[in-house]
Simulated assay, not measured.
Amino acid sequence: MKNKLVLNSIKRVALLGIVGFAVQLHAEILVILPETGPMSRAGLTIKQGILNASQASKNEIPLKFVNSDQIPIKTILKKEVNKKTEMIIGPLARPDVEVLVSTKPKIPVLALNEVYQSDKNVWQFSLSKNDDALALLDFIQNDKVTKLYIVREKGTETESINFLNALFSNFSGEVDPIDEMPKVIGRNEGILLLGTNNWLSSIPRLQEKRIYTQAIAIEEQKTLPKGMKFCDVPAIYEKEWKEVVKANKELPKSLAYQRLYAFGGDAWYIAQKFVLDPQIKTLSFNGRTGKIKIEGNRVERIPQCFERSKANLVPLYMFFERSKDVK
Rank of each mutant, 00 (worst) to 15 (best):
L100H: 00
M318D: 10
D138F: 02
I18L: 11
N3H: 06
I191V: 15
I302H: 00
F65M: 07
S54H: 15
N142M: 12
T156M: 10
F21K: 11
L16V: 12
F274K: 05
F139I: 01
V151E: 07
Q221T: 12
S169I: 03
V244S: 01
R152Y: 04
S201W: 02
E219M: 11
T158Q: 11
S172M: 10
M1T: 12
K239R: 13
K246Y: 09
Y257I: 08
I29V: 14
L206S: 02
D119V: 12
G155S: 07
P315S: 13
K229Y: 06
Q124P: 05
E240Q: 15
K2M: 09
P234K: 09
V122D: 05
N170T: 14
A111L: 02
P95R: 09
E300G: 04
K253T: 11
I50F: 00
N67C: 10
N142G: 14
T196L: 03
K79D: 09
Q24P: 06
M1G: 12
L136P: 02
A311S: 12
Y269A: 13
K293I: 15
K242N: 09
I216L: 13
F306A: 09
K239Y: 05
K242D: 09
R41F: 15
A311P: 04
I46Y: 05
V145I: 15
A14R: 12
S309A: 13
F274E: 07
L92V: 06
N162G: 06
E240D: 11
A27W: 08
K246T: 15
A111R: 00
T146M: 07
N82D: 15
P72I: 10
N8R: 11
I270N: 07
K4N: 05
V81K: 09
F163V: 01
R259H: 06
E295V: 11
D179T: 14
E300R: 11
K11N: 12
S9D: 14
E243N: 15
K324I: 15
D232A: 13
V23C: 07
R41V: 11
G37F: 01
I292T: 06
K242F: 05
G296W: 02
F171D: 07
E35P: 00
P225L: 12
L316E: 05
L30V: 06
V97E: 00
L63C: 07
V275R: 02
I178T: 15
Y237N: 05
K74Y: 01
G155N: 11
V31S: 06
A217P: 04
K47L: 08
L110R: 00
H26D: 12
W199I: 07
E238G: 01
G195H: 01
D69T: 13
E300H: 12
F21N: 13
R205T: 10
